[in-house]
């Protein structure tokens, strides 16, 4: 078991008394939660809070969602936790293509990371992990999500007018479109668990 907590951002604010007081308090709370997490999962817990993100938070009241970078994902056990959305993602798909109904069933039955509450992501959730700043394919953080194909991935969202169609996200170029539910596409499941993050993540 190993616990690592990166809180270098707090050290920048020694001159602000209230913040320094709170940050100590937060650090203790973070360590407490990290140890609970480590005990329950027996895995490495990494909680990075980067200085520029805290700065961004103070200026805008929110953590930027626009461009995902590698630091946006916290490895939590075997899952990838997105700090901004709080969603836990299956880091690797199983390299198989499914019809839309099979994709639902696959996520529904998935047991992974000691969790059974996996589901097919909504189209907005799935699009949230597209990295539009990437000029090479697939357009996704390839370290958090290795083995991602430059291909289409199913979302759970139905077409609004055609019930035989559902939305997909293409990780070859980041487009979001509908297609027939009988077509076979790749699947990446998601769950709602936040993992253990610092309270900063709940303020936005």
């Amino acid at each position: 078991m190993q616990i690592r907590v990166f809180c270098d951002a707090f050290l920048m604010d020694k001159n602000k008394t209230l913040f320094a007081f709170l940050s100590n308090w937060l650090l203790v709370a973070a360590l407490l939660f990290a140890s609970i997490a480590a005990y329950s999962h027996d895995n490495v817990v990494v909680i990075p809070i980067l200085a520029d993100e805290v700065q961004n938070f103070r200026q805008t009241g929110r953590v930027a969602k626009a461009d995902t970078t590698r630091e946006d994902y916290v490895p939590f056990g075997t899952q990838s936790v997105d700090k901004t959305t709080g969603l836990s993602w299956q880091p690797k798909d199983d390299n198989l293509e499914y019809t839309w109904l099979q994709a639902w069933a696959y996520c529904d039955r998935l047991e992974f990371g000691n969790r059974i509450d996996w589901r097919l992501p909504s189209v907005t959730e799935l699009q949230s992990i597209v990295d539009y700043g990437r000029s090479s394919v697939p357009v996704i953080d390839f370290i958090a999500f290795p083995t991602t194909k430059s291909s289409r991935y199913w979302s759970a969202t139905n077409g609004a007018t055609k019930s035989t169609y559902a939305w997909y996200v293409s990780f070859s170029d980041g487009t979001v479109r509908t297609t027939d539910k009988n077509e076979k596409n790749f699947v990446r499941c998601v769950r709602d668990g936040r993992g253990f993050l610092l309270p900063f993540d709940f303020l936005n």
Binding site: L22, A29, T85, G193, R194, L203
Partner: peptide, 21 residues
């Protein structure tokens, strides 16, 4: 106020793992 906010949020965090968007 910020202090109370954080305490409240920590309490929420304690009792609910799933905070849905």
């Amino acid at each position: 106020r910020l202090q109370y906010q954080i305490i409240l949020l920590m309490t929420v965090l304690l009792f609910s793992e799933n905070i849905s968007a």
